[in-house]
Computed example of a mutant assay.
Amino acid sequence: MALTTRIIQACLLCCITVLLPLKAETALEQLSFSDQLHYYAEHPLRSEEHKARNRYRNPVETLLFFAIEPQHQVLEIWPARGWYTEILAPYLKEQGQLTIAHHRQLQLDMDDDRQRFWARISRQLSERIEQQPEHFGAVKQLAFDPPELLHLGKENQYDRVLSFRNAHLWDQHGLLLQSMQEFFRVLKPGGILGMVEHRASRVSDITSFAAEGYLGEAYIIMVAEAAGFELLDRSEINANPLDSRDHSRGVYSLPPTLAMGSEDRARFLAIGESDRMTLKFIKP
């Protein structure tokens, strides 16, 4: 049955691509939210490398779980190379608004290699958005680099705030709670914070073992609740039971980073991308 469903979806996507010109926005709007997201997830402007990761990142199912609708005001935190941005932006551009919160882009001459890397990646995404306005639309952009650059907009501004695999980075610098509090401030009452994060091995209901890059699910829930959120739901959409989470370089041993180089490369490729929690919080 699952194979049949995938075949039907593939046929539908082929028909959409052939029959719907890119300018036929009204035709796209007649499709269900799910079919619109499928269309953009497989869009010709997405690289083959990005589309190949759909099997691990499950963008359509994930965005439907977070209940993203075309008229929403959506804030995406640290979009990196724009893997989700290139789906969200066209989906929202006619009725809603996408805002992305980058790393600051004025750090290309800094001594910190990591800061220079993220500044360069953010700059590249901004340039791509400017070069492809017909696809991305008018994406708003701001800098988010806590603790100095923490402000994400007006209070009660967004319907959805989304974070994909960022929480471990904030936690490394002791900034997870502060970041969550800012997400809470800018969300509308009833708004949803959607988070996907590398999931650590659970030791008990309240403790876990976290290798590099992984976080405990109970821990993230605890921090979110301390910021004022309530856990609305959780999903296994992005789970990977093949991930043992005990790799020598942690999550970075796995694709797409493959930090171990040629060492155990075939084994890591067979595992695939990390096991991930998918959490949906609501601002009461």
Results as ranks from 00 to 15, higher is better:
270 A>P: 04
56 Y>V: 07
202 R>C: 02
195 M>R: 08
3 L>Y: 13
102 H>N: 11
273 E>L: 07
59 P>H: 08
170 W>Q: 07
196 V>N: 03
190 G>H: 05
51 K>V: 06
58 N>G: 06
102 H>D: 13
52 A>G: 14
27 A>Q: 11
128 R>H: 15
70 P>L: 12
201 S>E: 09
85 T>E: 08
49 E>V: 06
119 A>T: 08
34 S>H: 12
33 F>A: 03
127 E>W: 10
270 A>M: 02
71 Q>A: 15
128 R>V: 10
166 N>A: 10
221 I>F: 01
55 R>W: 09
177 L>P: 00
9 Q>F: 13
146 P>A: 10
278 T>L: 03
50 H>R: 14
34 S>N: 06
244 S>H: 03
284 P>W: 12
251 V>E: 01
106 L>A: 13
39 Y>A: 01
167 A>Q: 07
63 L>R: 04
211 A>R: 01
132 Q>E: 15
275 D>I: 02
74 V>N: 14
265 R>G: 00
282 I>W: 07
152 L>P: 00
210 A>M: 06
10 A>R: 15
240 N>E: 11
16 I>M: 15
129 I>M: 04
59 P>V: 02
81 R>V: 00
210 A>L: 10
194 G>N: 12
207 T>S: 15
67 A>T: 13
86 E>F: 05
18 V>P: 01
195 M>D: 11
113 D>K: 15
98 L>F: 05
259 A>K: 12
79 P>E: 06
281 F>L: 02
199 R>I: 03
170 W>A: 09
283 K>W: 14
184 F>H: 13
217 E>H: 06
36 Q>W: 12
275 D>H: 05
247 H>S: 01
94 E>I: 10
26 T>N: 13
52 A>R: 08
26 T>A: 14
256 P>K: 13
256 P>E: 09
81 R>S: 07
121 I>C: 09
211 A>H: 07
3 L>H: 08
178 Q>H: 14
70 P>M: 12
255 P>Q: 05
173 H>A: 14
144 F>P: 01
